[in-house]
Write a protein that binds this DNA or RNA. Structure first.
Lengths: 208, 208
DNA sequence: GCGAATTCTTATCATTTGATAAGAAATTCC
DNA sequence: GGAATTTCTTATCAAATGATAAGAATTCGC
């Protein structure tokens, strides 16, 4: 997939966050970069400041690191979502986790430097300021939902939510990572999966 | 505490988010409201859209609701922090929880309507746009920290973090709410408290 | 396609947390 | 100040999850 093909698609997909006319767009795209990252490589790396925001054109990532010797997964993101280590990006502090691809992935990226440069271009500044706010707001909404799932739901409910989320997460992502995401061990997830399987199996039996 | 006393303090406290000269400030304050909310009353209410952002001048709040018959607490906020049901405020969807005061509290509030009105006043618009973005970014940082505590920490660690947080949460807030906040039952927190007490007691004994 | 490596499941036992009830401590209200 | 209410702690037992190990299934590399 090359740049010329990808950018018009990107333009369409983010129209609800930033809607530029042709002149503005021509200036805008000079500040964009296309990045291909191979499976299991990093978009952002623990210990380094994350200086860009990415939009997943194709692929998926997980937010992960190793804590007390154990690997954990804080979040997944898929096509058509923005990705960044938001606190590190905002504060320029080193990132406390990795953002790793789960598959070979393509991103459109905007660096913090370019974001700030665009804020100084009169033609764009107003729309970029708004874009930045909307992006930040969108992250807030994701965070609130994710936090809610920890505060009010059990591990089993979080897993069932994933099953029903529409993404075919369960087929695309290794079980161990899913377990980390919902906050339990793979062994414990295995038990939950079995429990769900046997309960649906028996209800099927009852139907037939 | 009255308005004339409170606003200059407020101005000083939010200087890092929005720094206005005297002319701008005089326009700005017409869009501010002082709110006093008695202990256990609501700043934002479940089922209603939350249409304002508050700054706690004095007091404390908890984000709470009842899920499956059980009361839960998602978050606490204290003096010098902004408060809002962020997803509801941003999307205008009904709020899914309450924000209740833990003590008699004073807020400086800005309504969504006033925020939008100020965005249309040329004198202020630029600084308000930035203020909105910084506020949103600040919420993101809080969310990332809070989420991290669920993803990588145990209940006991979350409790110890509270003890060391500087706020004297443990004295100001009923244990049952603290238990909800860290995601366990009051009974379970009681066990943890006892464990911490006896371990510090025995280490004291070893010292003397 | 086959062997090696990885991942997933199952089993067993330990630990943590939950549910419930009852008693102790603190608070509230006359 | 004392009775009533609420909150906190403790005890007991149940349920969920973790730790570890071993076997089954899958994936990977050649």
């Amino acid at each position: 997939m090359d740049r010329a093909l990808m950018l018009p698609i990107f333009r369409e997909k983010i129209k609800n966050l930033i809607d530029l006319n042709d002149d503005e767009w021509d200036v805008f795209i000079d500040f964009l970069k296309i990045k291909r990252i191979k499976k299991n490589d990093c978009f952002a790396e623990e210990g380094k400041t994350c200086r860009e925001i990415g939009f997943i054109m194709k692929g998926a990532v997980r937010y992960c690191n190793i804590v007390k010797g154990k690997e954990i997964t804080g979040y997944f993101s898929f096509e058509n979502n923005f990705v960044t280590a938001i606190k590190s990006y905002l504060t320029e502090e080193p990132c406390l986790y990795n953002i790793k691809t789960l598959e070979d992935s393509y991103f459109v990226t905007i660096s913090r430097k370019n974001m700030q440069a665009m804020l100084k271009i009169p033609l764009l500044s107003c729309k970029i300021e708004r874009f930045g706010r909307l992006l930040s707001e969108r992250f807030n909404i994701l965070f609130e939902d994710r936090l809610k799932s920890f505060v009010i739901k059990t591990a089993e409910e979080r897993y069932r939510d994933l099953l029903e989320s529409g993404n075919d997460i369960v087929n695309r992502i290794p079980v161990q990572y899913i377990a980390q995401f919902i906050g339990i061990t793979p062994v414990s997830l295995s038990r939950i999966r079995k429990k769900i399987l046997t309960s649906t199996a028996s209800s099927h039996k009852a139907d037939s």
